[in-house]
């Protein structure tokens, strides 16, 4: 089997592997380590050019304190929650229903509708920037959390439908047939038979969509502005003053912004990895 496990390689290969691994790991993590280092440095370190050395004084508490108590960060974090959670819920509701429809019922346009959902995923979303922006302005939803949530739900539902439909297809169809024989209404089949079986898929998808939306920067700056509506990814740039960039606060802010998805990952690691492969196997 390819690739061969390291244990079966020659001693020389093993040693060079063990020597290189930490080097590559550190190089890989260097940007992240730099951000962590910057976030505990005082501002004076940046003015005096001490970028990579040890911090002159440890200002971790002060920097993170400023991020939480003297900036709009809590507002931005709360906006992120207000955007991400409804989007996840909206996507789950819509895609479980579309997935059910496309996965269970056989009708003529089934495949074509399914293709349309899939095709939506292949559109590079940047080209939608201007029309979507104009649309939200016309609908009077520019610069509202509502507008951003609606767009995210609409756009993510395509991917979620693909995922759900394939999952439902893999369920034993006999369960649904048995229920039909019993004369159970279709919506009750959905609710009492299919939905409980979909729980692992829902969990995996929720984690995945949560990270997608939380990390979205593009649509956040296209469709919203200011601390009333923008999520935390866009809010980090607010540490750039008119003349100066506050590297230490931006770094601390980035760490804070990255924590929820990281926490989500560790708490739901099992579902996350399941989610990455689930849609692929039919």
């Amino acid at each position: 089997m390819f690739p061969n496990p390291i244990e079966k390689q020659s001693r020389g290969v093993q040693i060079s592997y063990q020597a290189l691994l930490p080097v590559v790991l550190i190089a890989w993590l260097l940007p992240l380590l730099a951000v962590m280092l910057f976030s505990i440095k005082p501002e004076s370190d940046f003015v005096s050019g001490n970028y990579w050395g040890l911090p002159d004084t440890l200002e971790g508490f002060k920097n993170y304190g400023k991020v939480f108590f003297e900036s709009d960060m809590p507002k931005y974090l709360w906006n992120s929650v207000r955007i991400t959670v409804p989007t996840v819920i909206g996507c789950m509701i819509l895609s479980s229903m579309t997935g059910f429809a496309l996965g269970v019922y056989k009708f003529r346009a089934n495949l074509w509708i399914f293709f349309m959902f899939v095709a939506g995923n292949f559109v590079p979303f940047q080209i939608l920037m201007v029309p979507v922006r104009d649309l939200t302005v016309d609908l009077d939803m520019y610069n509202t959390v509502r507008g951003l949530v609606l767009f995210h739900v609409a756009f993510q539902t395509g991917f979620c439908t693909l995922f759900m439909r394939n999952f439902i297809r893999a369920l034993p169809f006999e369960l649904i047939e048995a229920a039909r024989v019993e004369g159970i209404a279709e919506w009750r089949i959905f609710w009492y038979v299919v939905l409980p079986l979909m729980k692992p898929a829902l969990a995996a998808l929720a984690v995945l969509i949560f990270t997608f939306i939380w990390n979205d920067y593009f649509w956040a700056i296209v469709l919203t502005q200011g601390s009333e509506t923008q999520p935390v990814t866009a809010g980090i740039t607010s540490f750039n003053a008119q003349f100066r960039a506050a590297y230490h606060l931006m770094s601390a802010g980035s760490i804070v912004a990255a924590l929820p998805p990281v926490a989500m990952f560790f708490l739901m690691q099992k579902h996350f990895i399941a989610g990455l492969t689930l849609g692929a196997v039919k």
């Binding site: 003015v47 005096s48 050019g49 960039a245």
Partner: peptide
């Protein structure tokens, strides 16, 4: 901003 350290130092 990055040119400031030369003068500060």
């Amino acid at each position: 901003q990055e040119a400031m350290p030369f003068m500060v130092n």
